[in-house]
């Protein structure tokens, strides 16, 4: 086993929508998710969030429309010449059209921005993919230079959008070389893979020990699907017991994963087991019979005085 190193990780900023992570270069139209100041491909300081680009495109086309109305309005006034009623009509008509258009445009700006954003995603999909690939190359470069925490931070950004098993695996492998702490900004569900992975299993165990709130439905499901693989690995039973202990924090999980709890009730630490016991004793009818029986049995055997 390799020795683990203490590290300082920057907190991860979770955006409301994944595309908020993307930034586009005004100089060369390259995309990146890395939070660098300069563009990774042309090195200019011209990276702006994708939404800002969409907003300015929407605004630009609105300005163009207003310009058309303005030019035609001015022409109308010009050709009206000395004819005062006609002049008034041209002036009034032009201003009215401009104000109407402007008001509608203002109201439609949010929708137009989203529409532009959609267009950019569709038209520049290849560029986005290419940008993320380049980001990954950069991460590999940083890894070669020996900066593992930074590599992990980069992969975390890339992996947030590109949810592929290789990128997840690389993150898990790096995390396994760090000394993890309770106060670290860690994540679990985005790292769950489509297949069983020993390092991921070990990582799940660490999370169950350090930040059990991160263990949610998807993780329980992963653990249940690969339970036999977990059992076969070294220390796997301990991991399963830790995950079972994490399930006890909500009665909902007790209801959803009775098999897990049934098999590991006898291995739960005392406080966790007593919590399970209280949850079940409160409304035994709500839980699987076998789980209720097993919980009472363990209670009698280990804790009843």
């Amino acid at each position: 086993m390799t020795t683990k190193q203490p590290v300082l990780l920057k907190p991860f900023e979770r955006p409301e929508y994944a595309y908020e992570k993307l930034r586009r270069c005004r100089g060369c139209a390259a995309y990146t998710v890395l939070q660098e100041k300069e563009c990774p491909s042309c090195h200019k300081h011209k990276l702006i969030p994708l939404e800002h680009e969409a907003l300015s495109r929407a605004k630009l086309s609105m300005w163009f429309e207003r310009l058309v109305v303005l030019v035609l309005g001015v022409a109308a006034v010009y050709f009206a010449g000395e004819d005062v009623p006609l002049l008034a009509l041209a002036l009034g008509g032009g201003i009215l059209a401009l104000v109407l258009l402007w008001r509608v445009q203002l109201r439609m700006l949010p929708q137009q921005t989203l529409r532009r954003l959609g267009q950019m995603l569709e038209r520049e999909g290849d560029r986005i993919v290419h940008g993320l690939m380049e980001d990954r190359e950069d991460a590999i470069e940083v890894f070669r230079s020996g900066d593992k925490p930074r590599t992990y931070e980069m992969l975390r950004e890339i992996g947030y959008l590109m949810r592929t098993d290789p990128i997840k695996m690389e993150q898990v492998l790096l995390l396994q070389t760090f000394i993890l702490r309770k106060d670290m900004d860690l994540m679990l569900e985005p790292l769950l893979m489509d297949h069983f992975n020993v390092d991921l299993a070990a990582y799940i165990g660490e999370i169950a020990r350090l930040q059990r709130d991160l263990i949610k439905e998807k993780t329980f499901r992963y653990v249940m699907v690969y339970e036999s693989e977990f059992r076969r690995m070294e220390g796997g039973e301990d991991i399963l017991a830790l995950v079972a202990a994490a399930a006890v924090r909500r009665s909902r999980y007790v209801k959803l994963y009775p098999h897990l709890l049934m098999r590991y009730a006898h291995r739960l630490p005392k406080d966790r087991f007593m919590r399970l016991y209280r949850i079940i004793a409160e409304r035994p009818a709500a839980y699987r019979d076998e789980l209720v029986t097993e919980t009472y049995r363990v209670y009698k055997e280990k804790y009843q005085v």
Binding site: E16, Y17, A18, Y19, L22, M108, Q111, Q112, L114, R115, L117, G118, L121, E122, G125, I128, V129, L132, L161, M162, R163
Partner: peptide, 20 residues
């Protein structure tokens, strides 16, 4: 067009699909 504007959630999905 306002009626056919994609929701942010849909755009996010589009992005995931592209990357997949």
């Amino acid at each position: 067009r306002a009626k056919r504007t994609p929701e942010p959630r849909e755009l996010e999905q589009t992005l995931y699909t592209i990357l997949k």
